[in-house]
Design a protein around this nucleic acid. Structure first.
Length: 293
RNA sequence: GGCGACGUGGCCGAGUGGUUAGGCGCGGGUCUGCAAAACCCGUCACACCGGUUCGAUUCCGGUCGUCGCCU
């Protein structure tokens, strides 16, 4: 079963309670909680929660490394396939969630090729992919450099064009949200409580050592980890670019925006049953369990 | 009180006598290896009142307001 939802929706606490009642472990689907040392800012489950319930896919990578979705899928599926106990999937990263439950087999990658392509003019890349596949634009956002780079990378590595890939049975299953594994899922929707909860939690983070945490990470934080909300703003602050108040205003704004994007991602997934955010944790857990049946 | 400058959409900020700068924010969306990323779409303003003009956000006069200098 799975519990998803935007950041600050309270899903972490619910997942822990649900897992406890079920004798399950939690497997996190969160793109940033995988990094060690990023605790306060990513709102990881606390020590008590992690003592009570085993959490997987948290603290599995060093912040200076790039932990890709493909790697995430490999590891998470490995855990899922070998687990002796039931697992509660919990998190807010839409792509990571789908990478775990859906038939997403990622095409290969090549660091050298990729960085070479990143240094190539976009127009040339677009020309290359369109020459190989006139309908490429139907499947790849030609305005999005990253997507174009990736499409060309896959094409050079495998010879497969975007159209060919889109025609695969697997791609069709993904479009239809046909899961690879069985599960029920609930989404927790904080509704108009979101802004308030974000600011409340951010205030706790601020007094809980967020700045110190980023400071400690500063020298050994990689590209992906450094782009996490809360971290990038404080890194700017530490670089002397903005003052503290502006920093936290920016974090508040960006967190709310992140929550909205997360909601957009999960919203169209027909497998998710939404329940409203509830004030009382007991009630929340009860409702969640009911919805998961 | 006098002189001068200015008054543009939630904010910042260009500009023009007649085809709606742009950025931020905000709203919506896309999503198969950086995904808390990247990208796409939307958001049509010119302080107020008169005047000139075929036509004024743009020119003229006045009103109000802001800022600066002077007294």
């Amino acid at each position: 079963m799975a519990i998803v939802g935007p950041t600050a929706s309270g899903k972490t606490a619910v997942a822990v309670d649900v897992a406890k009642r079920l004798g399950a472990d939690v497997i996190s689907v969160d793109s940033m909680q995988v990094y060690r040392g990023m605790d306060v800012g990513t709102a990881k489950p606390n020590l008590i929660q992690r003592r009570d319930v085993v959490h997987h896919m948290i603290d599995v990578a060093d912040p200076k490394d790039e932990f890709s979705v493909a790697e995430f899928r490999r590891q998470a599926r490995g855990i899922m396939d070998s687990s002796e106990v039931p697992l509660v999937i919990s998190g807010g990263s839409g792509l990571h969630f789908r990478a775990l439950v859906d038939p997403m087999s990622f095409a290969p990658t090549d660091e050298a090729l990729k960085s070479m392509l990143e240094g190539t003019e976009k127009a040339a890349l677009v020309a290359e992919i369109v020459a190989a596949d006139a309908a490429a634009g139907n499947h790849v956002d030609l305005a999005n450099t990253r997507r174009v780079v990736r499409a060309v990378e896959i094409f050079r590595l495998t010879g497969e064009t975007p159209s060919q890939r889109a025609r695969s049975a697997e791609a069709e299953d993904i479009r239809r949200y046909k899961s690879e594994i069985e599960f029920t899922a609930v989404g927790i929707d904080p509704g108009d409580q979101l802004g308030m909860r974000v600011d409340q939690r951010l205030n706790e983070m601020r007094h809980g050592g967020l700045i110190e945490e980023v400071k400690a990470l500063q020298a050994r934080i990689g590209r992906t980890a450094a782009s996490a909300v809360g971290y990038r703003e404080i890194l700017d602050h530490l670089a002397g670019m903005i003052d503290v108040d502006e920093t936290f205003q920016a974090i508040s704004r960006n967190t709310k925006r992140l929550a909205k994007k997360q909601r957009t991602w999960f919203q169209r997934d027909p497998r998710i049953r939404w329940i409203p955010w509830l004030n009382h944790s007991d009630e929340r857990v009860k409702r969640t369990l009911e919805a998961l049946k």
